[in-house]
């Protein structure tokens, strides 16, 4: 239901040795929200996502999904609940044909539950999903070995792999990094469409101009601390954010991208 709180993060903490990667970060996501997370490199964005998706065990704090405590659950259990993610450095199965990469999530418990455990048509579903992210269905591209695809395709394949789980929360870790302008322009409408359909999206991004086109809300992290959260234009007006993220004298719009 729209408006229902889907994901609630309370005071998450993680240190690696003496370095505080994430210190006491919390936020809430309602169904259909589109949250952008920005911040300089090393701000703890990926660690935060890794804690939510179960890849890193937090030192403290809680993650609730639909009111259920999922802190410290196994990554596959969290994925089966409907939280899917992509990786900053794409993690794919390079020796498989592109579309076969999507067979893996289609074999998950979540999908057999949703689809009623029907077998045999996974290849078709995979090709449909790839079509959605812009792999031309009738071309040879979906059948090519994943390892031989250009970077932009790999990023979109990773996105398709996350979407194959039919997630309720989609977490994108720097999806646009390394993509060409044209490729980004191709994916942005899909992001908007997914968001309009009611999918809850968290997007870590360095390309602010593109992010601000789609995100409803932006959260800024620096040195593991949340320094601002709110609508994109409001957040970027804050002096603290400008100082931390862009440097003091930068006007957004000229150097806001990358």
């Amino acid at each position: 239901m729209p408006g229902e709180t889907l994901l609630k993060v309370r005071g998450l903490r993680k240190s690696f040795g003496g370095v505080i990667a994430v210190g006491n970060v919390g936020f809430e996501l309602k169904q259909g929200d589109f949250l952008g997370i920005i911040g300089p490199n090393g701000a703890g964005k990926t660690t935060l996502v890794n804690m939510i998706t179960g890849f890193v065990r937090p030192d403290g704090g809680k993650v609730y999904f639909k009111g259920k405590d999922i802190t410290g659950s196994r990554p596959y259990d969290i994925a089966n609940l409907g939280i899917a993610r992509t990786f900053q450095m794409v993690r794919l199965f390079y020796h498989l044909p592109a579309y076969k990469n999507l067979i893996i999530p289609l074999c998950s418990k979540r999908i057999s539950r949703i689809r009623g455990g029907r077998f045999g048509e996974r290849d078709e579903v995979a090709l449909d999903l790839l079509d959605d992210v812009g792999f031309e269905r009738d071309s040879y591209v979906p059948y090519k070995q994943a390892g031989s695809l250009p970077h932009g395709y790999l990023k979109r394949l990773d996105l398709a792999r996350a979407l194959a789980l039919r997630p309720e929360v989609l977490i994108l870790d720097e999806l646009f990094s390394g993509m060409s302008m044209a490729e980004v322009a191709g994916v942005l409408p899909l992001m908007e469409k997914l968001s309009d359909k009611g999918l809850t999206i968290i997007m870590i991004e360095h390309r602010l101009r593109e992010l601000f086109k789609v995100a409803h809300r932006v959260m800024v992290l620096t040195f593991g601390q949340k320094i601002a959260e709110g609508p994109p234009d409001e957040v970027m007006q804050s002096d603290e954010v400008k100082k931390a993220y862009l440097g003091t004298d930068v006007e957004l719009g000229e150097s806001g991208r990358d």
């Binding site: 890849f55 196994r74 990554p75 596959y76 259990d77 020796h95 418990k109 789980l165």
Partner: peptide, 14 residues
């Protein structure tokens, strides 16, 4: 064998 983390994130109990 290729990438166990990617398989976990796809909801498979490896």
């Amino acid at each position: 064998r290729d990438d166990d983390r990617a398989v976990m994130s796809a909801g498979i109990n490896i």
